[in-house]
Design a protein around this nucleic acid. Structure first.
Lengths: 332, 332
DNA sequence: CTGAAAGCGCTTACAG
DNA sequence: CTGAAAGCGCTTACAG
């Protein structure tokens, strides 16, 4: 099935030169006489020769390969990020391995080991909560960019989304609309992502002299079903609540459904604001007001930073900060 | 930055054996004396040794790497497929490169060449329309699984979704509900996917003695905006139409929005059926009736087939057929 | 400007 | 049961 691989040796033979001359013209390394250059090039052409990246990697220790570790590519937040990473990687000839950690630290460690075995040149990772040991261990010997990671590790670089500000934006907006009893579906605990959004929520409340009612903050895994559940609980136990801020759009979808089941109209009886602006958000009825993050750009910036690290080994880079914006639609 | 790699030689030295003995115990190749086995193992442990897959690949010609070429990972159809592929790959220690062809044959060719340079062991591809030359050329020397590819190429294997039957199911359902004027948003032309769904649509119509009105079949790229446009056109030009069958859920979303703008209630004034059952479908208002494909399973089956091909080089395998089902919700 | 030598980190026969 | 030799397909110094 697999036909014989054609090697640099074949090209050299056909062009009547040594193999390092072929290597030279292919890598534009040293100066080569134009005539032999042409001979080599046409031999390459004639044979359809493609140098083996694995053989090259043996000696250069560069595989032109990077790893992307997301929580779950099926989570609608990640595909656009992945697309940004892959597109940017492609502009420089890199290929990217896709891995899902499910936010699980052990699986994350397995994945990182696997990436190391494959000798990736670098890794972009959405670290799971508690994955500090993983990052520390790997940042030491492979360039790493961590997205939304609060801590700094030597050798690693960070891309940060200002989620705290995003949360504050969202809750400020609700308060401006006249809401004073605002519940929150807070997402999976424990996690830094949760903490930062809760902080933004409290920031906004406190800035307006509103009390922070701990019972109105419900943690829970960030999936639709859980959003339905939590919102129902919130709205029945505390009927005074007129607005809900959700950790992400999936929970917001759940909240919308809960309102529907409870006969509460959105936004009139209960306003809802989500987070992430996943593609689905604009298609809901009513369309979801949410905090937007440019996920494609996030992916691009992360890969770009990784490329910078590869170009300047040993250098340290300041974190990349990505802004957020409130996308006002109809749910609040 | 990069600390010195530890090699099989280091392990051999520490264990006091030759490097091929280390290789033997790591690969369970030949029989090794239990005592030396233990010595090697603890040396491996102590050093934290991980064999380099690229060095191994040099000699075995196996990288334990596969390529996945989708149209666009940001298209909500693909993430679950990718997850299925990656999960299945992981069970056998394979890593997967993610690539997006955008359905463009030239980009597809570039990607395939890049995969070949990286010496992937196999490729799973959603071929673009007209990509026959690509498949033919590559199937010859790298195991290939083509999803929803109508043609057969020597060396390639296929995974098929019965979209024609899916379309027929959908339209039959609409007819059973009493609709006789059913429009179709047909998707991007030219493409096999379009043709097969149109065939299913016609199958159903003709089976019920209903005329096929060519003007009611509107092609167009399968995105929401285009769905809005086409549905508006269809419903204003042919007011007798009471139901729309869409090529995919994104077009169906567009149709729903068009109905809303036109003041047509769904499903009462216009019934809508989509295709794919992307996660979003269940979250719409009203929830979308659609033809369901198990995307995760599709990914798993494709990767499984590729694994089979890798295990039995030279063997040929019959196509894998995936069933579809009508998921009845509220839009029709 | 170009080639001979050495080596990247492994595994595969081949001896013993 | 274990080691010495050769080689996978390239690139990197080093000569000339």
């Amino acid at each position: 099935m697999k036909r014989k691989q054609i090697t640099i040796e074949d090209v050299a033979a056909l062009a009547g030169v040594s193999r390092q001359t072929v290597s030279r013209v292919l890598n534009n390394k040293d100066i080569v006489a134009e005539a032999t250059r042409q001979r080599v090039l046409s031999a390459v052409e004639e044979l359809g020769y493609r140098p083996s990246k694995v053989a090259r990697a043996m000696v250069t220790h560069r595989t032109e390969t990077v790893g992307l570790v997301v929580g779950d590519i099926a989570n609608p937040f990640f595909p656009e990020v992945a697309r940004g990473v892959v597109d940017m990687a492609q502009t420089r000839g890199y290929n990217v391995f896709l891995c899902n950690s499910d936010g699980n630290v052990e699986q994350e460690a397995r994945i990182l080991h696997s990436m190391a075995e494959h000798a990736v040149d670098g890794i972009i990772i959405y670290p799971g909560f508690g994955g500090g040991d993983n990052l520390r261990a790997f940042a030491e010997f492979v360039p790493l960019v961590a997205v939304n990671c609060f801590f700094d590790y030597p050798g690693a670089s960070r891309v940060m989304v200002d989620t705290r500000r995003g949360a504050k934006l969202a809750v400020n907006y609700l308060i401006d609309k006249g809401h004073t009893a605002i519940g929150m579906l807070a997402g999976q605990a424990p996690s830094l992502n949760l903490m930062r959004r809760v902080r933004g929520y409290r920031d906004a409340l406190m800035a307006h002299g509103l009390p922070v009612v701990t019972e109105w903050i419900l943690p829970g895994s960030p999936v639709v079903a859980r959003g339905v559940e939590s919102a129902q609980q919130l709205l029945t136990q505390y009927p005074q609540i007129t607005a809900i801020f959700a950790y992400n759009d999936l929970l917001a979808v759940g909240a919308m459904r809960a309102c529907q089941e409870l006969g509460r109209r959105v936004p009139d009886d209960c306003a809802i604001v989500g987070f992430d602006d996943i593609p689905l958000a604009a298609m809901l009825a009513p369309p979801l007001t949410t905090v937007g993050v440019d996920k494609y750009e996030l992916g691009q910036r992360a890969m770009n930073r990784l490329l910078d690290m590869l170009d300047s080994p040993g250098a340290t880079f300041p974190p990349v900060y990505l802004d957020v914006e409130l996308v006002i639609r109809e749910s609040a």
